[in-house]
Design a protein around this nucleic acid. Structure first.
Lengths: 320, 320
DNA sequence: GGAGTCCTCCGAAACGTTTCAATAACAAAT
DNA sequence: ATTTGTTATTGAAACGTTTCGGAGGACTCC
């Protein structure tokens, strides 16, 4: 591997001169600089991130740890992060699963933005201490170097549920949980509860899914198999489950929205494709990402951080 | 930041001993090792990737550069790569846009798998020389350190088009290009051409889209606005354009598949949701990813590489 | 009791940068 | 002619690891 030493030798100057040139230091006159640059270019010299990071004690890189590349939700979020980060002169790297853990444990970035429920609180708190700022998007967790920027799920779900309840008379309302214990599920459920209570409704049934389409399908099949009465309004913790439920409901010839209403959360692309189109809550993912990125950079620079609240936007379509 | 030196001092052994312990070297007896481990744990020591990478002259990391996180196609591919890589003891980092360039130019990984048309051949060839093996997924390009693993688009499109042509009598066949000049578009178009020629068809019309749903929609609107005759079979370079076309066709009350047939390529999730369900070609993305990852690792290790050919699977649904 | 063999541990060099402090060369000012 | 100042350049230390080559001690074996 060609190193800075080779460039120095080839251009007849010292290592330090080469380094200054490559970092555009003004104290090197153009005549020397251009010669060095040309030679560096000729031998295809690429600097070593490792050496540079070691010396400078930073990486100019932000790690984004997500739970999986499949989620239809991450696209805009990552886009927003990337956008903001390039603006600030940082590089974004994205990881999942065990790779995220490796990267965290080896201090491979200056800060991390994480939305991956598989990364335990314990690991995060422990790591943050020696790693650098960690910003959580998928849960609330406060610690000295751990921050969070979460969505106001509660309020959004309150609004959506209220709309669903008042749009027509429903008698048997059901809440479909996602993975229990997650921040998203809990806060959305809270919003649901507040909404039905504020409308003097006290009975509701609960079903438990896993945020996946499949788990939504299973819920319907199970209701039918056990011959339980079918709810006439499903408030679902996310769109994927809602769409799964809708699919099976249609197969069994239920009339949506007339006999059964349904709504989701997230406004994934599919939501406006299914028939009828799904009412849901849209999150400004792109802004959320930009926000998180900005916060990360501010924390690294030890500047004052400007925390925003991310709100959801209720979107009423045809599903209830 | 706590370093290995701090651990050494706190546990009363030398730096080298700590290093051996942390790397599970058998020459350190368990009694010493466990003490050191405990102290490292207590002070929350995290090793420095930078220092380690510099010394070992590798990163145990593979970079995957993709064009954008939005594409519905990348999910399984990344999943396959990640799967294979963890099996081989490597960490995967994913990047887009300018971040990819930064990472490439600073030699931040041991190899790269790229499918991002924005990264120029020139950059890739130049970088590969000092970076390490680069494996291209989105084009063919051979150079000393540049490799490619591409899909047999031509054959798959040949089969799909043949099926479409023979399924019923069509008189006005159209090919809908994606971004021209891309490997995918070119090879798919070749397959289309071979198919119609082998069926003694010599006339066809061409439309030019951008691989996006929107561009598909535009094509239909433009045909109608200009009062051109509507084709009765659209062979599209990908699903997204096909779905855009289908959408507008339905709005204008064309009967699919009876008066107009259509097919796509890629088998994105949406393809089985639209009505009628889209005929298309499915790519084994997960295997493709695993394949690419394995190749990358073999190249790094300078082992013999086993190159596979990735084939597409034609899926006939209801759209022609 | 001396030579040989293990076992446990350590010192120091090296990886490729950045950057401080210092030097050399030369012009300008006294 | 010496000092002063400026500009161009350099040497060397430091960043935090890994790992080679030993050192020192305990044990075995004759």
């Amino acid at each position: 591997m060609a190193s800075i030493k080779d460039v120095a030798k080839a251009s007849g100057v010292s290592i330090s001169t080469v380094s200054y040139v490559l970092n555009d230091d003004p104290r090197i006159p153009e005549v020397t600089a251009s010669k060095v640059r040309q030679i560096a270019n000729e031998i295809g010299y690429l600097p070593s991130a490792a050496a540079r990071n070691l010396k400078k004690q930073n990486t100019k890189t932000i790690l984004v740890a997500i739970s999986d590349f499949g989620g239809p939700v991450y696209h805009e979020l990552l886009d927003g992060i990337q956008h903001q980060l390039t603006k600030e002169g940082y590089t974004m790297i994205v990881s999942t699963g065990i790779s995220s853990v490796n990267l965290l444990k080896e201090r491979s970035a200056d800060a991390a933005i994480v939305t991956d429920i598989h990364l335990s609180n314990e690991l995060l708190i422990k790591t943050a201490k020696n790693f650098g700022p960690i910003i959580l998007l998928d849960r609330k967790l406060s610690d000295e170097f751990v921050y969070h920027i979460t969505i106001d799920n509660e309020e959004a779900m309150f609004e959506l549920t209220s709309k669903a309840i008042t749009s027509r008379k429903r008698n048997k309302i059901a809440y479909v949980h996602g993975v229990t214990g997650t921040y998203d599920n809990q806060t959305r459920f809270q919003g649901f509860l507040r909404a039905i209570h504020s409308h003097q409704i006290s009975t509701y049934s609960e079903y438990f899914g896993l945020f996946t389409k499949q788990s939504g399908e299973d819920i319907v099949e199970q209701i039918i198999r056990k011959e339980e009465p079918m709810p006439d309004l499903f408030i679902c913790a996310n769109d994927e489950m809602a769409i799964g439920i809708m699919d099976r409901l249609k197969v069994h010839h239920f009339d949506i929205p007339n006999t059964v209403g349904i709504c989701g959360f997230d406004d994934i692309d599919l939501s406006s494709y299914v028939q009828p189109q799904l009412s849901t809550v849209k999150i400004a993912h792109r802004e959320w990402g930009m926000n998180a990125a900005l916060t990360a950079v501010q924390l690294i620079r030890k500047e004052a951080v400007t925390f925003f609240v991310q709100k959801g936007q209720v979107i009423i379509r045809d599903s209830f």
